[in-house]
Deep mutational scan, measured.
Amino acid sequence: NQASVVANQLIPINTALTLVMMRSEVVTPVGIPAEDIPRLVGMQVNRAVPLGTTLMPDMVKGYA
């Protein structure tokens, strides 16, 4: 099963992502693939992302 990117903490709206904010986990539904974590660093979320939430492509500005 493919691992997805999951929020390791509450990520406030418009926050630029850092490695410490994300972890990989096998979840359903599948979100952004864990191998894209390096690409996500520095990108901003367009909404608040609660701890444990799977990051979906539409949550990250410029990802989709």
Results as ranks from 00 to 15, higher is better:
Asn1Leu: 11
Gln2Ala: 14
Gln2Thr: 15
Gln2Arg: 02
Ala3Cys: 15
Ala3Met: 13
Ala3Lys: 04
Ser4Trp: 10
Ser4Val: 15
Ser4Glu: 00
Ser4Phe: 07
Ser4Asn: 02
Val5Ile: 11
Val5Met: 02
Val5Asn: 00
Val6Lys: 09
Val6Asp: 00
Val6Met: 15
Ala7Cys: 03
Asn8Ala: 15
Asn8Met: 12
Gln9His: 13
Gln9Leu: 10
Gln9Val: 09
Leu10Met: 10
Leu10Tyr: 06
Ile11Ala: 01
Ile11Cys: 03
Pro12Gly: 09
Pro12Trp: 09
Pro12Leu: 07
Pro12Glu: 11
Pro12His: 11
Ile13Met: 08
Ile13Ala: 06
Ile13Glu: 08
Ile13Lys: 04
Asn14Cys: 07
Asn14Phe: 08
Thr15Glu: 05
Thr15Arg: 05
Ala16Pro: 11
Ala16Cys: 05
Ala16Lys: 05
Ala16Ile: 05
Ala16Leu: 15
Leu17Gly: 00
Leu17Asp: 01
Leu17Asn: 00
Leu17Lys: 00
Thr18Met: 09
Thr18Ser: 10
Thr18His: 03
Thr18Cys: 08
Leu19Cys: 08
Leu19Pro: 04
Leu19Asn: 03
Val20Asp: 07
Val20Tyr: 12
Val20Asn: 06
Val20His: 14
Met21Leu: 15
Met22Cys: 06
Met22Pro: 00
Met22Asn: 00
Arg23Cys: 03
Arg23Thr: 04
Glu25Gly: 14
Val26Asn: 09
Val26Tyr: 11
Val26Thr: 09
Val26Gly: 14
Val26Arg: 02
Val26Met: 07
Val27Tyr: 07
Val27Ile: 05
Val27Leu: 05
Val27Ala: 08
Thr28Ser: 07
Pro29Met: 12
Pro29Lys: 06
Val30Ala: 09
Gly31Thr: 02
Gly31Lys: 02
Gly31Ser: 03
Gly31Pro: 00
Ile32Pro: 00
Ile32Asp: 00
Ile32Phe: 03
Pro33Gln: 09
Pro33Gly: 09
Pro33Phe: 14
Pro33Met: 10
Ala34Met: 09
Ala34Gln: 14
Ala34Pro: 10
Glu35Val: 05
Glu35Ser: 10
Glu35Trp: 03
Asp36Asn: 05
Asp36Arg: 05
Asp36Trp: 05
Pro38Val: 08
Pro38Phe: 12
Leu40Ala: 02
Leu40Gln: 01
Val41Pro: 05
Gly42Ser: 11
Gly42Arg: 07
Gly42Leu: 04
Gly42Asp: 08
Met43Tyr: 14
Met43Trp: 11
Met43Arg: 13
Gln44Val: 08
Gln44Ile: 12
Gln44Glu: 06
Val45Glu: 01
Val45Gln: 00
Val45Gly: 01
Asn46Thr: 10
Asn46Gln: 12
Asn46Met: 13
Arg47Trp: 09
Arg47Gln: 15
Ala48Tyr: 12
Ala48Pro: 05
Ala48His: 11
Ala48Val: 08
Val49Asp: 01
Val49Cys: 04
Val49His: 02
Val49Lys: 01
Val49Ser: 04
Pro50Asp: 11
Pro50Met: 10
Pro50Thr: 15
Leu51His: 07
Leu51Phe: 13
Gly52Ile: 01
Gly52His: 15
Gly52Glu: 12
Thr53Gly: 11
Thr53Ser: 11
Thr54Val: 05
Thr54Asp: 01
Leu55Val: 09
Met56Thr: 11
Met56Pro: 01
Met56Asn: 11
Met56His: 14
Pro57Gln: 12
Pro57Val: 06
Pro57Leu: 06
Pro57Cys: 14
Pro57Glu: 04
Asp58Ala: 10
Val60Pro: 01
Val60Gly: 00
Lys61Tyr: 10
Lys61Val: 11
Lys61Gln: 10
Gly62Met: 12
Gly62Arg: 07
Gly62Tyr: 11
Tyr63Leu: 07
Tyr63Trp: 13
Tyr63Lys: 02
Ala64His: 13
Ala64Phe: 02
